[in-house]
Design a protein around this nucleic acid. Structure first.
Length: 174
DNA sequence: TTAGTGATATCC
DNA sequence: GATATCACTAAA
């Protein structure tokens, strides 16, 4: 029995949401009805304008607009011209927080994850419940370890060294 | 280690 | 309009 995570889950600080998303199942229902599921094994928190690694630190722009909106909104970003990175907006409105889905079981890397789930910019701005993309909790609670975030050298030592990356220590099933 | 790729932001 | 930058991956 799986429970779909809804508004209450996402409407909290990203540092609470990010570790809890680890071990959950990300689901995408395609237009042809096919269901793709993937267990989340790694997430990262991006916490508002003060976090230099967060896109919102540059201020409110067309792109980061979504981060300032409702929690539970899917924020998808095209990186390096070919990789879709998926985030979900967390926290109360206006705090510009988000959680990046960094990896899934057997799928290391944020772009591999979206590629596997066939998620692209078309899902950007949609809600992560009540639509074609959602996260389920099947009760699994893997052990979690933390680590510094990656790929954000530009953010400076202070933010770079924050342990806001959450990784499942997996032995679990798919 | 390096090339590839294109949207976005920033600077004319 | 032009350029610099980027939360990456695959191939070597």
């Amino acid at each position: 029995m799986s429970i779909i995570l809804e508004s209450d889950f996402y409407n909290r600080d990203c540092l609470e949401v990010a570790p809890e998303l680890v071990g959950k199942i990300l689901v995408h229902r395609l237009t042809d009805g096919q269901i793709l599921r993937l267990r989340i094994t790694e997430t990262e928190a991006y916490r508002g304008e003060e976090d230099k690694a967060c896109h919102a630190s540059k201020g409110r722009t067309k792109r980061t607009e979504l981060l300032y909106g409702d929690s539970g909104v899917i924020y998808i970003y095209l990186c390096y011209g070919m990789h879709w990175l998926m985030n979900v907006v967390t926290g109360t409105n206006g705090t510009a927080q988000g959680v990046l889905f960094r990896a899934g079981y057997d799928k290391n890397g944020p772009a591999r994850l979206t590629k596997y789930l066939k998620i692209d910019g078309g899902e950007n701005g949609k809600k992560i419940f009540g639509g074609d993309v959602w996260v389920e909790d099947d009760g699994e609670r893997p052990a979690i370890k933390t680590a510094p975030r990656v790929g954000i050298d530009y953010a400076g030592e202070y933010w770079k060294n924050k342990e806001w990356r959450f990784i499942a220590e997996y032995g679990g099933e798919k």
